[in-house]
Amino acid sequence: MTTLWVNGRIVAPGESGVSALDHGLTVGDGIFETALVDDGRPFALTRHLRRLERSAALVGMSTPTETEIRAAIEETLAAAAATSPVTHGRLRITVTSGVGPLGSDRGDAAPSLIVGVVPTGAWPAEVRAVTVPWTRNERSAVAGAKTTSYAENVVALAEAHRRDAHEALLANTRGELCEGTGSNVVVVLDGELLTPPLSSGCLAGITRELFLEWAGQEGLAVVEKDLPFDVLAEAEGVLLTSSTRGVQPLAAIDGRPLERTEAGEKARELYDRRAAEGIDP
């Protein structure tokens, strides 16, 4: 069951906690973070809150204080635990610009804060992805921000599900590999680990950030470089990274089976081992 905290109180799913004029609803003017919940605690929460601040700055939006957000998270997790402990789940932190006019202009209302926690199961043993024809705009005004304007991702992911896959991968407007709808991408080519740079327009994923940091510390070479989108057709292996996935090898892309490569297995093992060392790295 989903546990929700909306603007100062726990609410039942389906109960109204924000105005029908909230700009997060009317024009998608909001930002968010999704963190893994492990044994009732959010993983890498400090990094997620730092990225929330960066997203707010990119879109020019005010947010509640970090103290207020952390208190809301604690209250939500406590309410969830009172019903059933969340041993493995998803924490969602959403901030909108609050009540605004029926148009793109913002009002001067206080931001809305919504926190949700839901238990989740494990990913399937074999995860498949497909490529889709739509592109990320690396020159967008909100490139690099994790915004609630997610219609593009909804459409792309629905196409992936229609094709019996779990994720959709997108190019940017230059025809370069960018990211998935909710993941960053690492390819294995000639035994080398390669990933698109942030200049590709991909989101600065927290798992991507941790993986690159830890790989650098342990001498596992991961090269950030611009990659043509069709690299996916020749890669020996492809890995997805996200907060709920960790580092996840793909079993197939566009129906083409992929290998469990040595480089990919080293990447997955390194991330799993380092992530187990502490809840807030």
Results as ranks from 00 to 15, higher is better:
T3Q: 09
L4M: 13
V6C: 14
V6M: 15
G8R: 11
G14A: 06
V18M: 12
S19F: 03
D22W: 06
G24H: 03
T26M: 09
D29M: 05
F32I: 03
T34N: 10
T34F: 07
V37L: 15
V37M: 07
F43E: 08
T46D: 10
R47F: 05
H48Q: 10
R50E: 15
R50H: 13
R51H: 06
L58H: 03
V59F: 05
T63W: 01
T67A: 14
E68C: 06
E75G: 10
E75D: 14
T83Y: 02
T87G: 12
G89I: 06
I93T: 08
T96Q: 00
S97R: 15
G98E: 02
V99A: 09
P101Y: 07
G107V: 08
A109L: 03
L113N: 03
T120R: 11
A122G: 02
P124A: 06
A125H: 12
E126S: 14
A129W: 04
P133G: 05
P133C: 02
R139K: 10
R139I: 05
S140V: 12
V154C: 12
V154Q: 08
R162C: 07
A165T: 00
A165E: 00
A165L: 03
A171C: 09
N172Y: 01
T173Q: 03
N184P: 14
V188H: 10
L189D: 14
L194H: 05
P197K: 03
L198E: 05
S200D: 04
L203A: 04
L203W: 01
E209W: 15
L210H: 15
F211Q: 12
Q217V: 13
E218Q: 13
L227Y: 08
L227H: 08
P228Q: 00
P228F: 00
V231F: 03
A233E: 04
E236P: 03
L239H: 05
L240V: 01
T244L: 15
G246K: 07
V247F: 01
Q248I: 02
L250C: 09
A251M: 08
A252F: 06
D254Q: 13
G255K: 12
R256V: 14
R256Y: 08
P257Q: 02
G264P: 00
R268D: 00
E269C: 01
E269K: 02
L270P: 09
D272K: 06
A276M: 07
G278K: 10
P281W: 13
